[in-house]
């Protein structure tokens, strides 16, 4: 899968918000808020091909989480990214 083009990650309070700033985005009002972990993962995979395992590995390598927790967290994260339509499979 891949992140969609035209989105920019911006800081908002203690968290982040991913906003549509490209000319090629169909719905310019679409946005999704992210915590620091999700924002880190987004930046890591932005613009390149990745799969669920890429994110799980990144999470395990950078945060002190068990593989089981990582799998569960990434599944939830991908669900929210798909719902917000900011990634394509």
């Amino acid at each position: 899968m891949k992140t969609k083009k035209g989105y920019t990650l911006r800081p908002l309070g203690q968290e982040y918000i991913l906003v549509a700033e490209g000319l090629d985005v169909a719905d310019a009002t679409r946005m999704i808020s992210m915590n620091a972990t999700a924002a880190f993962l987004w930046e890591e995979v932005e613009g390149r091909d990745f799969d669920e395992q890429t994110l799980v590995d990144l999470l395990i390598d950078n945060w002190n989480v068990s593989p089981e927790t990582a799998k569960k967290d990434i599944a939830a994260l991908l669900k929210s990214w798909r719902k917000a339509e900011v990634i394509v499979d």
Binding site: T8, E21, T29, S33
Partner: peptide, 27 residues
């Protein structure tokens, strides 16, 4: 919430967000 507030204000002003400096300033 803060993201909801941000989104409400975001749709109530206009600007060309593909112009990087403008998007940054508005944000």
């Amino acid at each position: 919430s803060m993201p909801e507030s941000y989104a409400s204000v975001y749709v109530s002003f206009s600007g060309y967000r593909f112009i990087k400096e403008m998007a940054e300033g508005l944000h």
